[in-house]
Write a protein that binds this DNA or RNA. Structure first.
Lengths: 194, 194
DNA sequence: ATTATCTATAGATCTATAGATAATGC
DNA sequence: ATTATCTATAGATCTATAGATAATGC
Protein backbone atom coordinates (compact mmCIF):
# COMPACT_ATOMS: atom_id res chain seq x y z
CA UNK A 1 0.00 0.00 0.00
CA UNK A 2 2.84 2.35 0.73
CA UNK A 3 4.28 4.22 -2.28
CA UNK A 4 7.66 5.84 -2.92
CA UNK A 5 8.44 9.39 -1.87
CA UNK A 6 8.31 10.49 -5.50
CA UNK A 7 4.89 8.94 -5.99
CA UNK A 8 3.66 10.53 -2.79
CA UNK A 9 4.78 13.94 -4.06
CA UNK A 10 2.90 13.23 -7.30
CA UNK A 11 -0.19 12.31 -5.32
CA UNK A 12 0.02 15.59 -3.46
CA UNK A 13 0.14 17.53 -6.72
CA UNK A 14 -2.73 15.50 -8.14
CA UNK A 15 -4.84 16.19 -5.05
CA UNK A 16 -4.23 19.96 -5.34
CA UNK A 17 -4.95 19.91 -9.08
CA UNK A 18 -8.15 17.91 -8.64
CA UNK A 19 -9.23 20.17 -5.78
CA UNK A 20 -8.61 23.35 -7.80
CA UNK A 21 -10.88 22.01 -10.52
CA UNK A 22 -13.58 20.44 -8.36
CA UNK A 23 -13.91 23.41 -6.00
CA UNK A 24 -14.42 25.79 -8.93
CA UNK A 25 -17.00 23.38 -10.31
CA UNK A 26 -19.02 22.65 -7.18
CA UNK A 27 -18.07 25.20 -4.53
CA UNK A 28 -15.90 24.63 -1.47
CA UNK A 29 -18.70 23.16 0.64
CA UNK A 30 -20.17 20.75 -1.89
CA UNK A 31 -16.95 18.96 -2.72
CA UNK A 32 -15.77 16.65 0.03
CA UNK A 33 -12.28 15.43 0.87
CA UNK A 34 -13.53 12.00 -0.14
CA UNK A 35 -14.65 13.21 -3.57
CA UNK A 36 -11.22 14.63 -4.34
CA UNK A 37 -9.32 11.61 -3.05
CA UNK A 38 -11.57 9.29 -5.05
CA UNK A 39 -10.83 11.30 -8.19
CA UNK A 40 -7.10 10.81 -7.64
CA UNK A 41 -7.65 7.12 -6.93
CA UNK A 42 -7.01 7.16 -3.19
CA UNK A 43 -9.19 6.75 -0.12
CA UNK A 44 -10.27 9.62 2.12
CA UNK A 45 -8.36 8.40 5.16
CA UNK A 46 -5.01 9.06 3.51
CA UNK A 47 -5.80 12.71 2.99
CA UNK A 48 -4.54 13.78 6.40
CA UNK A 49 -1.08 12.44 5.66
CA UNK A 50 -0.83 15.12 2.97
CA UNK A 51 -2.64 18.08 4.55
CA UNK A 52 -3.57 19.05 8.08
CA UNK A 53 -7.13 20.03 7.17
CA UNK A 54 -9.51 20.62 4.31
CA UNK A 55 -8.95 24.37 4.75
CA UNK A 56 -5.24 23.95 4.07
CA UNK A 57 -6.08 22.26 0.76
CA UNK A 58 -8.59 24.99 -0.08
CA UNK A 59 -5.87 27.64 0.29
CA UNK A 60 -3.39 25.69 -1.85
CA UNK A 61 -6.03 24.98 -4.49
CA UNK A 62 -7.00 28.66 -4.70
CA UNK A 63 -3.45 29.78 -5.28
CA UNK A 64 -2.93 27.02 -7.85
CA UNK A 65 -6.08 28.01 -9.75
CA UNK A 66 -5.20 31.69 -9.83
CA UNK A 67 -1.60 31.11 -10.87
CA UNK A 68 -2.73 28.85 -13.74
CA UNK A 69 -5.29 31.45 -14.83
CA UNK A 70 -2.74 34.26 -15.02
CA UNK A 71 -0.41 31.96 -17.00
CA UNK A 72 -3.24 31.29 -19.46
CA UNK A 73 -3.90 35.05 -19.72
CA UNK A 74 -0.25 35.53 -20.62
CA UNK A 75 -0.56 33.03 -23.51
CA UNK A 76 -3.80 34.55 -24.77
CA UNK A 77 -2.38 38.07 -24.82
CA UNK A 78 0.91 36.88 -26.39
CA UNK A 79 -1.02 35.20 -29.23
CA UNK A 80 -3.22 38.25 -29.85
CA UNK A 81 -2.80 39.75 -33.33
CA UNK A 82 -4.23 43.15 -32.28
CA UNK A 83 -4.82 44.83 -28.91
CA UNK A 84 -3.71 42.52 -26.11
CA UNK A 85 -6.17 43.72 -23.47
CA UNK A 86 -9.05 43.52 -25.93
CA UNK A 87 -8.13 39.93 -26.80
CA UNK A 88 -7.99 39.03 -23.12
CA UNK A 89 -11.36 40.61 -22.38
CA UNK A 90 -12.96 38.68 -25.27
CA UNK A 91 -11.37 35.48 -24.03
CA UNK A 92 -12.55 36.07 -20.46
CA UNK A 93 -16.11 36.95 -21.41
CA UNK A 94 -16.51 34.10 -23.90
CA UNK A 95 -19.31 31.54 -23.76
CA UNK A 96 -16.58 28.93 -23.48
CA UNK A 97 -15.37 30.42 -20.18
CA UNK A 98 -18.97 30.86 -19.05
CA UNK A 99 -19.65 27.15 -19.57
CA UNK A 100 -16.48 25.87 -17.92
CA UNK A 101 -16.03 27.56 -14.53
CA UNK A 102 -13.92 24.62 -13.34
CA UNK A 103 -11.23 25.54 -15.85
CA UNK A 104 -11.50 29.32 -15.52
CA UNK A 105 -11.06 32.28 -13.21
CA UNK A 106 -11.37 31.37 -9.53
CA UNK A 107 -12.74 34.77 -8.56
CA UNK A 108 -15.61 34.36 -11.03
CA UNK A 109 -16.23 30.75 -9.96
CA UNK A 110 -15.99 31.15 -6.19
CA UNK A 111 -15.74 34.89 -5.53
CA UNK A 112 -18.69 35.36 -3.25
CA UNK A 113 -17.66 32.38 -1.10
CA UNK A 114 -14.20 33.78 -0.40
CA UNK A 115 -15.27 36.28 2.23
CA UNK A 116 -16.46 33.42 4.43
CA UNK A 117 -13.26 31.40 4.15
CA UNK A 118 -10.56 31.35 6.85
CA UNK A 119 -7.88 34.02 6.58
CA UNK A 120 -5.26 31.62 5.19
CA UNK A 121 -7.52 31.09 2.17
CA UNK A 122 -8.15 34.80 1.67
CA UNK A 123 -4.42 35.46 1.93
CA UNK A 124 -3.72 32.92 -0.81
CA UNK A 125 -6.39 34.53 -2.98
CA UNK A 126 -4.93 37.97 -2.33
CA UNK A 127 -1.56 36.80 -3.64
CA UNK A 128 -3.36 35.57 -6.77
CA UNK A 129 -5.33 38.79 -7.14
CA UNK A 130 -2.13 40.82 -7.01
CA UNK A 131 -0.62 38.66 -9.74
CA UNK A 132 -3.73 39.13 -11.88
CA UNK A 133 -3.78 42.89 -11.38
CA UNK A 134 -0.06 43.16 -12.07
CA UNK A 135 -0.44 41.16 -15.28
CA UNK A 136 -3.37 43.26 -16.45
CA UNK A 137 -1.37 46.42 -15.65
CA UNK A 138 1.30 45.22 -18.05
CA UNK A 139 -1.11 44.96 -21.00
CA UNK A 140 -3.18 48.05 -20.14
CA UNK A 141 -2.77 50.97 -22.58
CA UNK A 142 -2.31 53.88 -20.13
CA UNK A 143 0.71 56.20 -20.32
CA UNK A 144 1.69 56.00 -16.63
CA UNK A 145 2.10 53.12 -14.19
CA UNK A 146 -0.55 54.56 -11.87
CA UNK A 147 -3.02 54.89 -14.73
CA UNK A 148 -2.37 51.37 -16.02
CA UNK A 149 -3.00 49.94 -12.57
CA UNK A 150 -6.35 51.74 -12.36
CA UNK A 151 -7.27 50.40 -15.78
CA UNK A 152 -6.28 46.89 -14.68
CA UNK A 153 -8.48 47.00 -11.57
CA UNK A 154 -11.45 48.36 -13.50
CA UNK A 155 -11.10 45.74 -16.24
CA UNK A 156 -10.76 42.90 -13.74
CA UNK A 157 -13.81 44.07 -11.77
CA UNK A 158 -15.97 44.42 -14.88
CA UNK A 159 -14.91 41.00 -16.19
CA UNK A 160 -15.53 39.23 -12.87
CA UNK A 161 -18.88 40.94 -12.35
CA UNK A 162 -19.98 40.35 -15.93
CA UNK A 163 -19.18 36.64 -15.78
CA UNK A 164 -20.87 36.18 -12.41
CA UNK A 165 -23.99 38.01 -13.60
CA UNK A 166 -24.08 35.91 -16.78
CA UNK A 167 -23.72 32.66 -14.83
CA UNK A 168 -26.50 33.65 -12.44
CA UNK A 169 -28.99 34.28 -15.23
CA UNK A 170 -31.42 31.60 -16.42
CA UNK A 171 -32.20 33.28 -19.76
CA UNK A 172 -29.68 32.67 -22.56
CA UNK A 173 -30.58 35.94 -24.28
CA UNK A 174 -29.90 38.12 -21.23
CA UNK A 175 -26.77 36.09 -20.51
CA UNK A 176 -25.36 36.75 -23.98
CA UNK A 177 -26.34 40.43 -23.78
CA UNK A 178 -24.37 40.79 -20.56
CA UNK A 179 -21.27 39.01 -21.89
CA UNK A 180 -21.31 40.96 -25.18
CA UNK A 181 -22.02 44.35 -23.60
CA UNK A 182 -19.27 44.08 -21.02
CA UNK A 183 -16.77 42.67 -23.55
CA UNK A 184 -17.54 45.53 -25.92
CA UNK A 185 -17.54 48.27 -23.28
CA UNK A 186 -14.46 47.43 -21.21
CA UNK A 187 -11.86 48.46 -23.82
CA UNK A 188 -13.57 51.86 -24.29
CA UNK A 189 -13.98 52.23 -20.53
CA UNK A 190 -10.36 51.46 -19.89
CA UNK A 191 -9.32 54.16 -22.34
CA UNK A 192 -11.59 56.63 -20.52
CA UNK A 193 -10.08 55.83 -17.11
CA UNK A 194 -7.94 58.60 -15.67
CA UNK B 1 -49.63 25.82 19.51
CA UNK B 2 -51.71 26.62 16.50
CA UNK B 3 -51.84 30.32 15.51
CA UNK B 4 -54.35 32.37 13.51
CA UNK B 5 -54.23 32.62 9.73
CA UNK B 6 -53.00 36.20 10.01
CA UNK B 7 -50.19 35.19 12.34
CA UNK B 8 -49.25 32.33 10.06
CA UNK B 9 -48.99 34.75 7.14
CA UNK B 10 -46.75 36.96 9.30
CA UNK B 11 -44.58 33.96 10.14
CA UNK B 12 -44.20 33.22 6.44
CA UNK B 13 -43.02 36.77 5.79
CA UNK B 14 -40.66 36.64 8.76
CA UNK B 15 -39.16 33.38 7.51
CA UNK B 16 -38.51 34.85 4.04
CA UNK B 17 -37.05 38.03 5.54
CA UNK B 18 -34.78 36.12 7.90
CA UNK B 19 -33.72 33.80 5.08
CA UNK B 20 -32.89 36.69 2.75
CA UNK B 21 -30.60 38.13 5.41
CA UNK B 22 -29.02 34.91 6.67
CA UNK B 23 -28.34 33.46 3.23
CA UNK B 24 -26.51 36.64 2.17
CA UNK B 25 -24.55 36.46 5.41
CA UNK B 26 -23.59 32.79 5.43
CA UNK B 27 -24.28 31.35 1.98
CA UNK B 28 -27.11 29.04 0.97
CA UNK B 29 -25.41 25.87 2.21
CA UNK B 30 -24.22 27.09 5.59
CA UNK B 31 -27.59 28.34 6.81
CA UNK B 32 -29.98 25.54 7.72
CA UNK B 33 -33.75 25.50 7.78
CA UNK B 34 -33.43 25.10 11.54
CA UNK B 35 -31.27 28.23 11.85
CA UNK B 36 -33.85 30.35 10.08
CA UNK B 37 -36.82 28.94 11.98
CA UNK B 38 -35.01 29.45 15.27
CA UNK B 39 -34.40 33.10 14.37
CA UNK B 40 -38.13 33.58 13.81
CA UNK B 41 -38.89 31.75 17.06
CA UNK B 42 -40.28 28.53 15.58
CA UNK B 43 -39.04 24.95 15.37
CA UNK B 44 -37.66 23.38 12.23
CA UNK B 45 -40.47 20.84 11.86
CA UNK B 46 -43.02 23.56 11.11
CA UNK B 47 -41.06 24.78 8.12
CA UNK B 48 -42.65 22.34 5.69
CA UNK B 49 -46.09 23.71 6.42
CA UNK B 50 -44.94 26.98 4.84
CA UNK B 51 -42.71 25.78 2.00
CA UNK B 52 -42.32 22.54 0.10
CA UNK B 53 -38.52 22.56 0.28
CA UNK B 54 -35.50 24.61 1.24
CA UNK B 55 -34.98 25.40 -2.45
CA UNK B 56 -38.41 27.04 -2.64
CA UNK B 57 -37.42 29.34 0.23
CA UNK B 58 -34.09 30.09 -1.42
CA UNK B 59 -35.88 31.31 -4.56
CA UNK B 60 -38.31 33.47 -2.57
CA UNK B 61 -35.51 34.90 -0.45
CA UNK B 62 -33.44 35.80 -3.53
CA UNK B 63 -36.29 37.71 -5.12
CA UNK B 64 -37.02 39.46 -1.82
CA UNK B 65 -33.41 40.52 -1.39
CA UNK B 66 -33.08 41.86 -4.92
CA UNK B 67 -36.37 43.75 -4.81
CA UNK B 68 -35.37 45.40 -1.53
CA UNK B 69 -32.00 46.33 -2.95
CA UNK B 70 -33.45 48.05 -6.01
CA UNK B 71 -35.88 49.93 -3.74
CA UNK B 72 -32.93 51.15 -1.68
CA UNK B 73 -31.11 52.21 -4.86
CA UNK B 74 -34.15 54.25 -5.80
CA UNK B 75 -34.00 56.12 -2.47
CA UNK B 76 -30.26 56.71 -2.71
CA UNK B 77 -30.51 58.15 -6.21
CA UNK B 78 -33.57 60.25 -5.30
CA UNK B 79 -31.68 61.79 -2.39
CA UNK B 80 -28.57 62.52 -4.45
CA UNK B 81 -27.75 66.24 -4.74
CA UNK B 82 -25.63 65.77 -7.89
CA UNK B 83 -25.29 62.99 -10.46
CA UNK B 84 -27.62 60.12 -9.54
CA UNK B 85 -25.55 57.28 -11.02
CA UNK B 86 -22.40 58.61 -9.37
CA UNK B 87 -24.17 58.71 -5.99
CA UNK B 88 -25.37 55.14 -6.46
CA UNK B 89 -21.92 53.88 -7.41
CA UNK B 90 -20.39 55.52 -4.32
CA UNK B 91 -23.11 53.98 -2.15
CA UNK B 92 -22.62 50.53 -3.67
CA UNK B 93 -18.83 50.57 -3.37
CA UNK B 94 -18.79 51.96 0.17
CA UNK B 95 -17.01 50.28 3.07
CA UNK B 96 -20.40 50.11 4.77
CA UNK B 97 -21.78 47.88 2.01
CA UNK B 98 -18.54 45.88 2.02
CA UNK B 99 -18.93 45.16 5.72
CA UNK B 100 -22.61 44.25 5.64
CA UNK B 101 -23.27 41.75 2.83
CA UNK B 102 -26.36 40.50 4.64
CA UNK B 103 -28.05 43.87 4.07
CA UNK B 104 -26.73 44.50 0.58
CA UNK B 105 -26.73 43.33 -3.01
CA UNK B 106 -27.51 39.63 -3.38
CA UNK B 107 -25.42 39.25 -6.53
CA UNK B 108 -22.35 40.53 -4.69
CA UNK B 109 -23.10 38.39 -1.62
CA UNK B 110 -24.03 35.12 -3.34
CA UNK B 111 -23.27 35.62 -7.04
CA UNK B 112 -20.89 32.75 -7.60
CA UNK B 113 -23.20 30.30 -5.84
CA UNK B 114 -26.14 31.08 -8.11
CA UNK B 115 -24.96 29.03 -11.08
CA UNK B 116 -25.20 25.90 -8.95
CA UNK B 117 -28.73 26.56 -7.71
CA UNK B 118 -31.84 24.90 -9.19
CA UNK B 119 -33.46 26.67 -12.11
CA UNK B 120 -36.31 28.09 -10.00
CA UNK B 121 -33.72 30.02 -8.00
CA UNK B 122 -31.90 31.30 -11.08
CA UNK B 123 -35.22 32.38 -12.58
CA UNK B 124 -36.04 34.40 -9.46
CA UNK B 125 -32.60 36.01 -9.60
CA UNK B 126 -33.05 36.79 -13.30
CA UNK B 127 -36.25 38.70 -12.50
CA UNK B 128 -34.28 40.67 -9.92
CA UNK B 129 -31.38 41.28 -12.29
CA UNK B 130 -33.78 42.68 -14.90
CA UNK B 131 -35.23 45.05 -12.31
CA UNK B 132 -31.75 46.19 -11.33
CA UNK B 133 -30.66 46.74 -14.94
CA UNK B 134 -33.89 48.59 -15.75
CA UNK B 135 -33.45 50.85 -12.75
CA UNK B 136 -29.82 51.61 -13.62
CA UNK B 137 -30.90 52.33 -17.22
CA UNK B 138 -33.22 55.02 -15.88
CA UNK B 139 -30.43 56.91 -14.10
CA UNK B 140 -27.76 56.34 -16.77
CA UNK B 141 -26.72 59.48 -18.70
CA UNK B 142 -26.81 58.17 -22.30
CA UNK B 143 -28.86 59.86 -25.01
CA UNK B 144 -30.62 56.74 -26.30
CA UNK B 145 -32.42 53.86 -24.59
CA UNK B 146 -30.02 51.33 -26.13
CA UNK B 147 -27.01 53.29 -24.91
CA UNK B 148 -28.38 53.71 -21.39
CA UNK B 149 -28.99 49.97 -21.14
CA UNK B 150 -25.38 49.26 -22.13
CA UNK B 151 -24.19 51.74 -19.54
CA UNK B 152 -26.43 50.09 -16.92
CA UNK B 153 -25.02 46.62 -17.60
CA UNK B 154 -21.43 47.85 -17.53
CA UNK B 155 -21.95 49.75 -14.28
CA UNK B 156 -23.67 46.78 -12.61
CA UNK B 157 -20.91 44.39 -13.69
CA UNK B 158 -18.13 46.67 -12.47
CA UNK B 159 -19.87 47.26 -9.13
CA UNK B 160 -20.56 43.55 -8.51
CA UNK B 161 -17.05 42.53 -9.52
CA UNK B 162 -15.42 45.31 -7.51
CA UNK B 163 -17.32 44.39 -4.35
CA UNK B 164 -16.62 40.67 -4.73
CA UNK B 165 -12.92 41.32 -5.31
CA UNK B 166 -12.77 43.64 -2.28
CA UNK B 167 -14.51 41.08 -0.06
CA UNK B 168 -12.15 38.32 -1.19
CA UNK B 169 -9.05 40.30 -0.24
CA UNK B 170 -7.35 39.92 3.13
CA UNK B 171 -5.39 43.18 2.91
CA UNK B 172 -7.30 46.35 3.88
CA UNK B 173 -5.11 48.54 1.68
CA UNK B 174 -5.72 46.54 -1.51
CA UNK B 175 -9.41 46.29 -0.57
CA UNK B 176 -9.75 50.05 -0.29
CA UNK B 177 -7.78 50.58 -3.50
CA UNK B 178 -10.20 48.31 -5.39
CA UNK B 179 -13.32 49.99 -3.97
CA UNK B 180 -11.98 53.51 -4.62
CA UNK B 181 -10.64 52.78 -8.09
CA UNK B 182 -13.84 51.18 -9.34
CA UNK B 183 -16.03 53.87 -7.74
CA UNK B 184 -13.93 56.58 -9.35
CA UNK B 185 -13.68 54.90 -12.77
CA UNK B 186 -17.24 53.72 -13.37
CA UNK B 187 -18.77 57.17 -14.00
CA UNK B 188 -16.04 58.00 -16.58
CA UNK B 189 -16.37 54.53 -18.09
CA UNK B 190 -20.11 54.85 -18.41
CA UNK B 191 -19.71 58.13 -20.27
CA UNK B 192 -17.26 56.43 -22.66
CA UNK B 193 -19.66 53.59 -23.43
CA UNK B 194 -21.10 53.69 -26.92
C1' DA C 1 -63.16 19.49 12.61
C1' DT C 2 -59.27 21.55 10.93
C1' DT C 3 -54.59 22.76 11.01
C1' DA C 4 -50.14 25.43 12.60
C1' DT C 5 -46.64 24.02 15.25
C1' DC C 6 -43.83 20.79 18.02
C1' DT C 7 -41.25 16.53 19.16
C1' DA C 8 -38.78 12.78 17.57
C1' DT C 9 -36.43 10.49 14.16
C1' DA C 10 -34.95 8.28 9.66
C1' DG C 11 -31.53 8.52 6.31
C1' DA C 12 -27.74 10.69 4.40
C1' DT C 13 -23.34 13.01 4.52
C1' DC C 14 -19.03 15.11 6.11
C1' DT C 15 -14.53 15.99 8.75
C1' DA C 16 -11.15 14.05 11.31
C1' DT C 17 -8.99 10.21 13.88
C1' DA C 18 -7.25 5.48 15.27
C1' DG C 19 -5.32 1.34 14.31
C1' DA C 20 -4.07 -2.12 10.69
C1' DT C 21 -1.58 -3.22 6.52
C1' DA C 22 2.11 -3.59 3.42
C1' DA C 23 5.69 -1.49 0.73
C1' DT C 24 9.79 1.65 0.89
C1' DG C 25 14.35 2.82 2.20
C1' DC C 26 18.01 2.94 5.63
C1' DA D 1 12.13 0.48 11.06
C1' DT D 2 9.50 3.74 8.90
C1' DT D 3 5.50 5.45 6.76
C1' DA D 4 1.83 6.05 2.82
C1' DT D 5 -2.43 4.31 2.44
C1' DC D 6 -6.60 1.74 3.84
C1' DT D 7 -10.55 0.33 6.77
C1' DA D 8 -13.63 1.51 10.20
C1' DT D 9 -15.76 4.70 12.96
C1' DA D 10 -16.83 8.66 16.21
C1' DG D 11 -19.21 12.80 16.39
C1' DA D 12 -21.64 16.28 14.23
C1' DT D 13 -25.04 18.17 11.10
C1' DC D 14 -28.74 18.58 7.71
C1' DT D 15 -33.24 17.79 5.03
C1' DA D 16 -37.53 15.94 5.18
C1' DT D 17 -41.25 13.20 7.33
C1' DA D 18 -44.60 11.18 10.82
C1' DG D 19 -47.42 11.50 14.50
C1' DA D 20 -48.83 14.25 18.64
C1' DT D 21 -50.58 18.52 20.54
C1' DA D 22 -53.45 22.37 21.16
C1' DA D 23 -55.58 26.49 19.37
C1' DT D 24 -58.45 28.42 15.55
C1' DG D 25 -62.64 28.90 13.08
C1' DC D 26 -66.73 26.86 10.98
Amino acid sequence: MKVSKGTMAEHREQIITAAARRFREGGFDNVSVGDIMKEVGLTHGGFYGHFSSKDELVALACLRAMTETVAKWQKVSDDAPGDRLEALVDFYLSLRHHDRPEAGCLVAALGSELSRQPSAVKEAVTVGQRKAIEFLSRIAPGKTKVLRRKQAILAFAAMVGGMIMARGTSEPQLRQEILDTVAESVPNSVRATS
